[in-house]
Design a protein around this nucleic acid. Structure first.
Lengths: 220, 220
DNA sequence: TGCCTTCAGTGACATTGTCACTCAACATGC
DNA sequence: GCATGTTGAGTGACAATGTCACTGAAGGCA
């Protein structure tokens, strides 16, 4: 059942069967439950993680209470920040939190090294993963440095909602997504509510007018 | 004279002579003068750059006039953002600008691939470079999202001054370093001046009290 | 029903960003 | 020297965002 995990991997670099088979041999499958800290400053892994099932949220945490979500690792992707940390052996402050129950595949460093050396497809996959995260972070920098908060909030609501019409999140959660304060989120949501773009109840936000929200989010 | 370039490379992964010799064979040496755009959205390189001499400033540019410096590439380092871009083939908005005259070594993609496959030291070097930049970007996100402007400005002044007592930069330049507006920099520098931490003249800032500035910068 | 915890709303204020200017410092040509 | 143009810096008013100290509402539970 784990045998087909590589088929889930996205991006330009799908791994062929031969690579997949080699991976399976050396990998250890691990499970973690929702809310677990997968990695963090105090919790540096000695293996490289590939996510088979579930989702990880990677968060930058400030000395004060504020957080900001850097990106999410979905099933089929690799979490290169752990790799980065392992290889650079530098301090960093980001932490990864299991947003659902997860199944991950841990690849010991030596095995990783050998695969990178010997399998071109694997190499391409790893580099693509790195590149993707670098570009994700560029996006975050752009948003935080130059983006307006209402724009960012509208975009985040739409992203969190997906195909649904409702988001289950407190104002505090949304603030921690965007790296701002709860009061700021409250203010902007009030405004959205007055304009009848959303309806609020405790812990839930109904998106009444997605097209209008998309307009706001597009002003980026 | 270029033969010893690998010796300059920093970090955990210095390249041994064998790797170095292979590199020299396939690399093309290029020169660019100060102010040239080394790479950018409209100017995607087809090779991987290793900087032999000089410095490159990597800047994120917003749709409005504002900029922010992401990091600098010094002699002996590699510019992985170009790599990232090449491999991911995704759009990005950052651009690299030669801050001095530079000498770079361009490695065609095929040669890069072969070296990564065959030379463990080179592989380690490349991964370390990626990791370093990821961590640099985490730092930028942290600064922009949670840092106070006076703290960031004090830190940047000290960094730009190095061992000297004076910084040659306009308020606009400093604003573009930090991703803020000129007026904000002016205000804060006024304050520093009133407190006799600096002295200003057109285009130059003398750091009168570095220890005090360091105190301010340390409040990060 | 009466507490208790968590979530959301509010007003005052500080910091930062934006806009529309003015003035000062240098460069250049006469 | 002087007139003029260009660039760098200062200023005040205002908007957006962040911080603080609250209040009150919603839901859980004994």
């Amino acid at each position: 059942m784990i045998g087909d995990w590589t088929e889930r991997f996205q991006g330009t670099a799908r791994l062929p069967r031969a690579v997949r088979d080699r991976l399976i041999k050396v990998a250890r499958v691990t499970h973690m439950s929702e809310g677990t800290q997968v990695f963090g400053p105090m919790n540096v892994p000695d293996s490289l993680f590939f996510l088979y099932e579930g989702r990880i949220r990677v968060v930058q945490r400030s000395d004060m209470g504020r957080d900001i979500v850097l990106y999410r690792v979905d099933a089929g992707e690799s979490c290169v920040l752990t790799t980065a940390c392992m290889l650079a052996e530098e301090a960093y402050e980001a932490e990864g939190i299991a947003e659902t129950d997860i199944t991950a595949i841990a690849l010991p460093k030596a095995a990783f090294d050998r695969l990178v050396a010997e399998e071109e497809a694997f190499r391409a996959f790893v580099f693509a993963a790195y590149s993707r995260r670098l570009i994700d972070l560029l996006r975050v920098v752009d948003d935080v440095a130059f983006g307006q908060m209402d724009v960012r909030l509208a975009a985040r609501l739409l992203a969190l909602a997906g195909d649904f019409k409702e988001v289950t999140a407190t104002h505090q959660h949304l603030a921690s997504e965007l790296g701002t304060a709860r009061e700021v989120v409250s203010r902007i949501l009030q405004d959205f509510q007055k304009r009848e773009l959303i309806a609020q109840s405790r812990g839930r936000i109904a998106l009444l007018d997605k097209p209008a929200l998309r307009d706001i989010a597009a002003a980026e």
